[in-house]
């Protein structure tokens, strides 16, 4: 199974792990989930759509990252998974 990881668990960052899967699954663990779960999920979904990526398991361990940081880490993780860095 191919895996890509990017980011960190530092404040204002997030650690994104992407794995090959039979279906698209998104798991979000965030210190601000109560307020921003939907926004983080939407950012992940939009980024996957932009990159035309399906059938991956995405885990976001968020420490208060802004949208562009989440998007950046997800792109890096996907490219690392596909070795397109």
């Amino acid at each position: 199974m191919r895996v890509g990881v990017a980011g960190s668990k530092e404040s204002n960052d997030c650690l994104v792990t992407v794995k090959e899967s039979n279906e698209t699954k998104i798991v979000i663990e965030s210190v601000v989930a109560a307020f921003f779960y939907d926004q983080i999920k939407a950012t992940v979904e939009e980024t996957l759509k932009e990159m035309e990526i399906e059938n991956v398991s995405v885990t976001v361990e968020d420490k208060g990252a802004l949208d562009y940081t989440i998007k950046s880490r997800l792109i890096s993780a996907i490219k690392r998974m596909t070795l397109d860095v």
């Binding site: 990017a6 562009y68 940081t69 998007k71 950046s72 880490r73 792109i75 890096s76 690392r80 860095v85």
Partner: peptide, 14 residues
């Protein structure tokens, strides 16, 4: 790659 993506997305969307 991570740094380039982060700066790129910051400059594109902040």
């Amino acid at each position: 790659d991570n740094a380039r993506n982060l700066v790129n997305n910051y400059l594109s969307s902040a």
